[in-house]
Simulated scan of single mutants.
Amino acid sequence: MTVLLSIRDLDVDLGRGGWFADAAPLNILSGVSLDLMPGETLGLVGESGSGKTTLARAVLGLQPVSGGRLWFDGAELTRPADFRAIRRRAALMFQDATASLSPRMTVGEAVTEPFAIHRIAVRNRHDKAAELLAEVGLPPEMAARYPHELSGGQARRVGVARALALKPALVIADEPTAGLDVSVQADILNLMADLKERHGLSYLIITHNLALVRHVADRIAVLYLGRLVETGPTRAIFADPRHPYTRSLIAAEPKPDPRKRRADLAIRGEIPSILRRPAGCEFHTRCPLAREICRVEPPALGDIGRGRSARCHFAETMTEGGRHELEHR
């Protein structure tokens, strides 16, 4: 099966600007490699500032890359024209659904705007808007409303309808349930799952919500300070995380039973500044299991079998039993 999206050794650097215009650029993403198969849902997780949204923007050509290569459906993306072409087949759902809609445009105009941008003729835009709104469970009269007249859930559904307009193969969803009530979150996730089956979509879901990726993602990729620290099938990672950062993120999930909370795996301190990246393993300043080697030698992203990889010196022994063994060394 052809890989839909392939990312190899992707680097993104940003200039500092202002008084620091002559200083070395900031490295935001470094050596990121990922594959996304047709019909697959990949969850991209990590704390704020880990580079998740920057990676999504780079995939769509909205953020210049400093190194690495990108392929979409077998075609390499190198020129601006290549990225303009991919935007017909890859859509973006923004984190703030209401703010992503122009207050001067009606819902009907917003969901059919992609046709105008890509100069695709539509016989009747009013009928097309009604068709797209019906796909996401909204009545046709919603097309006459403006963004300020929508609830959070309705605005999110409008965002999904606009993303579906050009029948994309890939949808990149940035925090698709942010700011929604729990019941509305469930409705949106069920809608996305239904559309995936109906249209054969692939999803790249960017989120902090581990409960969300556990529910919808086939595989997970974990970013820390712009580095990929663990990837693998969702079920395997939740059952047996092999990087301390992943383990701490999972342990931090709210649990009603206090006896099941894991304070010993809590992440210490704040995420370091990218201006002063720690030497060695960049997570060692916060890792509850750090050893001397972690402070001086950066680990490589290694294959640990069964479609999994982890960037940790102790990934091979990072099982539940291995964790206790490591703590007593």
Results as ranks from 00 to 15, higher is better:
residue 153 G to H: 05
residue 211 A to C: 12
residue 153 G to Q: 07
residue 130 A to D: 14
residue 171 V to W: 07
residue 154 Q to V: 00
residue 158 V to R: 04
residue 227 R to L: 14
residue 197 E to P: 04
residue 205 I to A: 03
residue 151 S to G: 11
residue 185 Q to T: 14
residue 221 A to Q: 09
residue 202 S to Q: 04
residue 159 G to Y: 06
residue 202 S to L: 10
residue 149 E to F: 07
residue 201 L to K: 04
residue 185 Q to I: 08
residue 195 L to Y: 13
residue 192 M to S: 08
residue 132 L to E: 08
residue 142 M to W: 05
residue 136 V to N: 00
residue 191 L to W: 11
residue 204 L to I: 13
residue 197 E to C: 02
residue 196 K to H: 10
residue 221 A to S: 14
residue 186 A to P: 10
residue 178 A to P: 11
residue 155 A to P: 01
residue 203 Y to H: 01
residue 211 A to P: 07
residue 205 I to M: 12
residue 168 P to A: 11
residue 208 H to K: 03
residue 222 V to Y: 04
residue 222 V to T: 14
residue 191 L to C: 11
residue 214 R to M: 06
residue 148 H to K: 04
residue 196 K to I: 02
residue 196 K to R: 15
residue 223 L to D: 07
residue 136 V to Y: 01
residue 173 A to D: 04
residue 221 A to N: 13
residue 219 R to E: 13
residue 198 R to S: 08
residue 218 D to W: 01
residue 169 A to E: 15
residue 161 A to D: 01
residue 218 D to L: 08
residue 218 D to S: 12
residue 194 D to Y: 00
residue 132 L to Q: 05
residue 191 L to V: 11
residue 132 L to I: 05
residue 161 A to G: 07
residue 145 R to N: 14
residue 136 V to T: 05
residue 136 V to W: 04
residue 226 G to N: 07
residue 146 Y to N: 01
residue 166 L to Y: 00
residue 173 A to N: 09
residue 222 V to L: 11
residue 223 L to E: 00
residue 211 A to N: 12
residue 191 L to Q: 07
residue 185 Q to P: 15
residue 206 I to K: 05
residue 195 L to F: 07
residue 180 L to S: 11
residue 135 E to Q: 07
residue 157 R to P: 07
residue 143 A to C: 01
residue 150 L to I: 01
residue 167 K to S: 15
residue 169 A to M: 05
residue 166 L to M: 13
residue 162 R to M: 11
residue 211 A to D: 10
residue 217 A to V: 05
residue 212 L to I: 14
residue 197 E to Y: 09
residue 155 A to V: 02
residue 131 E to D: 05
residue 160 V to G: 09
residue 144 A to P: 12
residue 183 S to R: 08
residue 161 A to V: 02
residue 194 D to A: 06
residue 161 A to L: 05
residue 130 A to H: 07
residue 225 L to P: 14
residue 219 R to S: 13
residue 198 R to K: 15
residue 156 R to C: 06
residue 184 V to T: 15
residue 178 A to I: 06
residue 159 G to S: 06
residue 168 P to C: 14
residue 130 A to S: 15
residue 157 R to A: 06
residue 166 L to K: 06
residue 198 R to M: 10
residue 210 L to G: 13
residue 185 Q to E: 15
residue 202 S to M: 09
residue 157 R to Y: 06
residue 208 H to R: 04
residue 157 R to D: 08
residue 218 D to E: 07
residue 146 Y to F: 14
residue 195 L to C: 09
residue 209 N to R: 10
residue 138 L to K: 09
residue 175 E to C: 10
residue 134 A to V: 00
residue 155 A to D: 01
residue 144 A to G: 12
residue 181 D to I: 13
residue 174 D to F: 08
residue 183 S to P: 10
residue 168 P to Y: 03
residue 214 R to Q: 15
residue 196 K to C: 06
residue 133 L to M: 08
residue 202 S to N: 08
residue 164 L to I: 09
residue 135 E to A: 11
residue 154 Q to E: 14
residue 183 S to C: 10
residue 132 L to Y: 02
residue 210 L to S: 05
residue 159 G to N: 10
residue 167 K to Q: 15
residue 182 V to G: 11
residue 172 I to S: 12
residue 208 H to E: 04
residue 187 D to L: 09
residue 150 L to Y: 01
residue 211 A to E: 12
residue 135 E to T: 05
residue 223 L to N: 08
residue 194 D to V: 04
residue 212 L to P: 12
residue 154 Q to D: 03
residue 221 A to V: 12
residue 131 E to H: 03
residue 201 L to C: 06
residue 172 I to L: 14
residue 223 L to V: 12
residue 176 P to V: 06
residue 218 D to V: 01
residue 208 H to L: 03
residue 199 H to V: 04
